[in-house]
């Protein structure tokens, strides 16, 4: 396998702009009369092709941060720029179009449509967009995504004929089939055992390496975060630290765990 250099490392003489930027991002909720600040003044950037993990304990605000970055939620204040365009205050239809064309999501629950087989579930974003997933071009893209998550041969299987890990891999294929600018994954291995979870992280890693897919992963698991090029440690709604691991084939968690230990986490 040929490794591409992280896109964060620009070619000599060429300036590469961040694909995603957050500037002083804040998200407040009103709960029983009190204002709770889930995200507090976060500023960060993600470079094209980069695999970034947002890591932190439960309630740290990492999932809220991901939802803001992905345009699923709107910030109380601050700004999110996707490929230089602000997405923080989009209308519902614009936000829908953004999700349809430029972002992909993988969640803890795979939520496949039970009546549809693997090909149909993976091609669902095209169907949603009103395109014919059976067309030659889109069909090829679907096959490619299925191959990337190593499900070739199971194209006609229905969700109930697949294991949990396979279902989540279908969810990953569904998220990347439109070749989104950014793939967001929120605890994608949360419902899976270690071995199956590793398979999912391998699949995500391959999309990053083989297709240059930019990925933002939310996890509380150091072993999952160790797949990332860079780990942003989130706590109390803020990015408290940044751990740069670089692109590594072995995904060893030890360096990250030792760094986290140094931070007292």
């Amino acid at each position: 396998m040929t490794l591409q250099p992280p896109a964060a490392a620009p070619a000599p003489g060429r300036t590469v702009l961040p694909i995603l930027e957050a500037r002083s991002l804040t998200r407040q909720y009103r709960m029983t009369g009190e204002i709770v600040e889930a995200v507090r003044g976060v500023t960060l950037s993600v470079m094209p092709g980069e695999f970034v993990a947002l890591m932190g304990p439960s309630g740290s605000g990492k999932s809220t941060l991901l939802q803001l970055l992905g345009g699923l939620d709107q910030p109380t204040s601050g700004e999110v720029l996707l490929e230089g365009e602000s997405i923080g205050r989009l209308s519902d239809s614009d936000a829908t179009r953004l999700r349809r064309e430029r972002t992909g999501f993988v969640f803890q629950s795979f939520n496949l449509v039970p009546l549809m087989n693997v090909v149909e579930n993976v091609g669902l974003p095209f169907t949603i967009a009103g395109q014919d997933p059976r067309s030659a071009d889109l069909s090829a893209r679907i096959r490619e995504a299925i191959a990337l998550v190593e499900l070739t041969g199971k194209e006609r299987h229905k969700p109930d004929q697949l294991s949990a890990g396979e279902q989540q891999r279908v969810a990953v294929a569904r998220a990347i089939v439109t070749r989104p600018a950014l793939l967001f994954a929120d605890e994608p291995t949360g419902n899976l055992d270690f071995r199956t979870g590793t398979g999912i992280l391998d699949a995500l890693w391959r999309t990053c390496v083989e297709r240059g897919q930019t990925i933002v992963l939310v996890t509380h698991d150091a072993k999952a975060a160790a797949y990332a090029d860079r780990v942003l440690v989130v706590g109390d709604g803020e990015v408290q630290d940044e751990i740069v691991l670089g692109r590594r084939e072995d995904h060893a968690a030890a360096p990250l765990i030792s760094r986290l230990a140094l931070l007292g986490l």
């Binding site: 699923l72 999700r99 992909g104 999501f105 969640f107 969810a171």
Partner: peptide, 16 residues
């Protein structure tokens, strides 16, 4: 609700 949420995240509109 979870399935609908996922489909919405995949670009499905409210109207759909």
């Amino acid at each position: 609700v979870r399935e609908i949420g996922t489909l919405r995240a995949a670009g499905m509109s409210r109207r759909q």
